[in-house]
Design a binder for these strands. Structure first.
Length: 881
DNA sequence: AACGGCACGTA
DNA sequence: CGTACGTGCCGTTG
């Protein structure tokens, strides 16, 4: 056991241990759903877990080789030359491992031109000198040379990484018969196959040890080389250059310049949220639990409250009235410098507001007129999740004004694929500090919640930090689109949309009897009652009882999705299949109806929540309830839409949608002459494209041709494959392939553009929309095909979907501004990606139609017109044209 | 009670 | 083996 009086520094060779783990664990047993191999990561982290548990290091770091070249390969190009290509399954695992270590808050080091062992040697030597008990974990024998009274080597045995052999000085002497410092001399004489270092012929470990024991060192041995008798003596004299070269190469560097000193490597609490997220992605469930247990974490709050806040918090002042006015003026530099703002809620109502400048903070209880005026005014403010905070203030009667930066939006623009993060996790991630939080499960919290004033101070710091990390394009999107959109969305949410409870309950009742009726008939067909909603029970019915051919397989057996059932209907017709499909349709719509009923507020309206940071492309997401997936495709589905009606005091619902906005954006981005002409010609798009693809007159494009071309056009922007297209159109793969080839040949600009998007993204590491919104991609260079191709399709789609999202958001800003400026009563209620729904008073229909059409059509200046379809009616279904 | 998997609604 | 979402149910797990 380590010396208990000394701090313990654990140093790990990341590559060497990960590589050992890779070979110790079966590749195929550790693969995520996405096809990412994880055996090396899993093995490494298991080992790390054991080490943390058994050795209880106080300080910890992991070193990696930066690349395969180092000063050693520069000196001797054959160094490690026998090592083959890195196995493709291993390659992507190192970055993920590093990500895991980062989430666990374990420092990793890598330095150009040096190997991990040099970093370890430097830190170990320094650590020993600084009074640490040092533990080195490496699978490289060269590290034996580091062992001394303060440094112990933990070396993996043949069984992989689950057991580590402990080498202190005595153990080395016992095993090799020499002192640790002498080990590299032995190795130099014998040679090291794995490093491609050839030793002296006929000299093995026995001989080398004997010589070194006798002469004390390699230098002394060579000085007395003429004393060695026999054939080996001759070899030694002839080949001594090899030994000298080997000794030079296997000497570890102990005086590197490093960014960390041993004392900087003190263990820090891990970022539980990031670890949980990543381990979830890697599907390491048991490992996560073990890790949390070792860390002594039962939940996140405990951990974050355990960590100290590194910064000195500014004192919390409590100015009021005129003092507050002076305070605000002073700390905002006369209203020019933004202040951090944090609204504190107590039981859902505003309790007060924390405000902070660079080094001062204030708590102002609610009810101060100066505060309210300042919040409503245009003095610049940094507010985390301004939409939510603004809604809380609005409920208390104050419209939040002057929002300058919002860290929630900034963090999303920086990493749009990340699930939205809490203020605490952002503080942790970007400022490296802990935001103390009380444990919500404790009645008497161990940790006091941080004052809203201090939270505001963190918000301001975060905003500034994140602004510094955003590129100019993203900043433009932030300032011109996302920040101003917040209050627009907040108003839409608060307003909600009236839904007729009568229509819903009538529909629900009808669907209820329909579902029961279909179920009864289905049971009759198979002679028993099963749960038609259970894929597992359906599999029994279809494949065992009815003996139908097997469909495509999934994790729990064979698929029973609609496509598979359709296919079965062709291969093995049975009335049960049709009934099952009908049952699915009816229950699905019934579910949606019931969700809407539950969402109906006392005001008779449904208030969705728009997740502004909910998508990776820039789209909005809607939840609680989701109003972006209300049925439209079927007759009954559309009945749901008839329940959406204008509210009290309004006369009609107005819908406005972009027709083929993604294709138009593709036409613009690709500058394809044919596609641009298609949109400028005024001809039906699919007819025009069909004529080109099939080489006929537009008038001669048959419905089949049009269907094919339409599917093709929509699929293009998603990275559609011949296989996928063939399945959708129920045609041969060869025909699909031909269709794609013909299409791309006729629209070469599109082909070049799509190819170019992916290539550029591979180079840049991100894609960009029309307005500068970025989406980073890591897997475009992955050697894992599944991962890479997924990333390619996402990269293909992101600028198109994302630009469309930009466009409609800009239109929404314009519409909202116009309506408010003109003091109209009509209001914008819903956004469904390419469609807006407004409720309008009769007298304003023409004016609102004009505003909406104009703002939508002119939201972006493209090389093709943006066509907007507007309709109005007594309900959402009727309003759609 | 929480979670993964499936299925399916929208653009 | 087509992008982007959210929701509900089932069945398993704790």
């Amino acid at each position: 056991m380590p010396d208990s009086k000394k701090p313990t520094l654990l140093l790990i060779d990341g590559h060497s241990l990960a590589f050992r783990a890779f070979y110790a664990l079966p590749v195929d047993s550790f693969v995520t759903r996405d096809g990412q191999h994880t055996n090396a990561i899993h093995g490494f982290l298991s080992m790390l877990n054991l080490l943390l548990q058994n050795e209880r290091p106080t300080h910890l770091a992991v070193a990696f080789d930066k690349s395969r070249v180092s000063f050693r390969t520069a000196e001797y190009p054959e160094y490690k030359g026998t090592r083959g290509e890195t196995p493709p399954e291993f390659k992507g695992q190192i970055p993920l491992l590093q990500e895991a270590l980062a989430a666990m808050n374990i420092p990793t080091l890598e330095v150009d031109n040096y190997e991990a062992d040099d970093i370890i040697a430097t830190l170990a030597t320094k650590g020993a000198a600084d009074g640490f008990q040092v533990l080195v974990t490496s699978g490289d024998r060269d590290t034996i040379q580091l062992v001394n009274d303060d440094i112990i080597l933990l070396y993996p045995n043949a069984r992989g990484v689950s057991e580590l052999k402990r080498y202190d000085r005595d153990a080395v002497v016992e095993k090799y018969g020499i002192e640790p410092e002498q080990y590299p001399e032995i190795a130099a004489l014998v040679g090291e196959t794995s490093d491609n270092l050839i030793g002296i012929e006929k000299v093995g470990e026995k001989t080398a040890v004997k010589w070194i024991q006798q002469y004390g060192s390699l230098d002394n041995l060579l000085a007395h080389a003429d004393e060695i008798t026999g054939v080996v003596g001759g070899y030694l004299r002839d080949q001594q250059d090899r030994a000298i070269r080997n000794r030079k190469l296997n000497r570890l560097v102990t005086d590197m310049e490093l960014e960390y000193a041993p004392a900087d490597l003190a263990r820090k609490p891990m970022n539980v949220e990031a670890v949980t997220e990543l381990f979830g992605r890697l599907q390491f469930k048991a490992l996560l639990e073990r890790l949390l247990k070792i860390e002594g974490v039962t939940d996140e709050a405990k951990l974050t409250s355990g960590g100290a806040t590194a910064s000195e918090l500014p004192p919390v002042q409590t100015p009021a009235g005129v003092d507050l006015e002076a305070w605000l003026d002073k700390h905002s530099d006369g209203g020019t410098a933004p202040l951090g703002v944090r609204v504190a809620l107590l039981n859902g109502t505003v309790d007060g507001v924390g405000i902070a400048g660079e080094s001062d903070s204030a708590w102002v209880p609610w009810g101060d007129a100066v505060l309210e005026a300042w919040l409503a005014g245009s003095s610049p403010k940094h507010v985390y999740d301004a939409k939510r905070q603004g809604k809380a203030l609005a409920a208390a009667g104050v419209e939040l004004g002057g929002v300058d930066l919002d860290p929630a939006l900034q963090a999303w623009l920086l990493r749009p694929s990340q699930k939205s993060e809490t203020l605490a996790s952002l503080v942790y991630y970007y400022l490296g500090e802990n935001l103390p939080q009380p444990d919500p499960n404790q009645l008497v919290p161990e940790t006091e919640a941080l004052s809203p004033a201090s939270e505001a101070w963190f918000v301001r710091r975060l905003a500034v930090e994140l602004a510094g990390r955003l590129d100019p394009g993203s900043l433009r999107v932030l300032h011109d689109i996302e920040v101003p959109l917040g209050p627009v969305l907040a108003r839409m949410e608060v307003q909600g949309i009236t839904v007729s409870a009568t229509v819903l309950s009538g529909l629900n009742e009808r669907l209820g009897t329909q579902v029961a009726d279909i179920a009864a008939r289905a049971y009759a067909e198979i002679g028993r009652e099963v749960n038609l909603g259970s894929p597992k029970q359906l599999q029994e019915v279809l494949f065992d009882q009815l003996g139908m051919p097997k469909t495509r397989s999934n994790k729990t057996g064979f698929s029973t999705d609609a496509q598979s059932l359709q296919d079965l209907q062709d291969l093995h017709p049975h009335p049960f299949l049709e009934l099952l499909l009908q049952h699915r349709d009816a229950t699905k719509i019934k579910q949606i109806v019931e969700t809407l009923q539950k969402g109906l507020g006392p005001d008779g309206r449904v208030h969705t929540n728009y997740e502004q940071t909910g998508s990776a492309t820039g789209r909005l997401a809607s939840n609680d309830p989701n109003l972006q997936n209300i049925p439209i495709k079927t007759e009954v589905g559309r009945e749901v839409r008839t329940a959406f009606v204008p509210g009290e005091g309004f006369d009609t619902l107005l819908t406005a949608d972009y027709s083929q906005i993604e294709m138009r954006i593709m036409a613009h981005l690709s500058e394809d002459a044919g596609l641009i002409e298609a949109f400028n010609s005024g001809e039906d798009l699919h007819r025009f494209v069909g004529a080109r693809v099939f080489g006929v007159d537009p008038a001669d494009v048959t419905p089949t041709m049009r269907t094919k071309v339409k599917a093709m056009s929509y699929g293009l922007a998603y990275g559609l494959s011949p296989f996928g297209l063939s399945k959708q159109l129920r045609i041969d793969v060869s025909e699909a392939k031909e269709l794609i080839a013909d299409y791309l040949a006729r629209f070469g600009g599109v082909r070049d553009y799509l190819r170019g998007v992916v290539e550029q993204a591979r180079i840049d590491g991100y894609t960009t929309t029309l307005f500068g919104r970025r989406r980073p991609f890591g897997d475009l260079t992955s050697t894992n095909r599944t991962l890479r191709e997924n990333a390619e399709r996402q990269a293909l789609n992101s600028p198109i979907q994302g630009s469309a999202a930009d466009v409609i958001k800009i239109a929404m800003l314009g519409i909202d501004a116009d309506i408010r400026e003109r003091g109209l009563a009509s209001r914008m209620l819903l956004q469904v990606h390419d469609e807006l729904v407004l409720e309008v008073v009769a007298a304003e229909v023409d004016e609102v139609t004009a505003i909406v059409t104009d703002r939508m059509a002119h939201a972006a200046d493209l090389s093709v017109p943006l066509d907007v379809q507007v309709g109005s009616g007594p309900n959402w279904d009727a309003a759609a044209h």
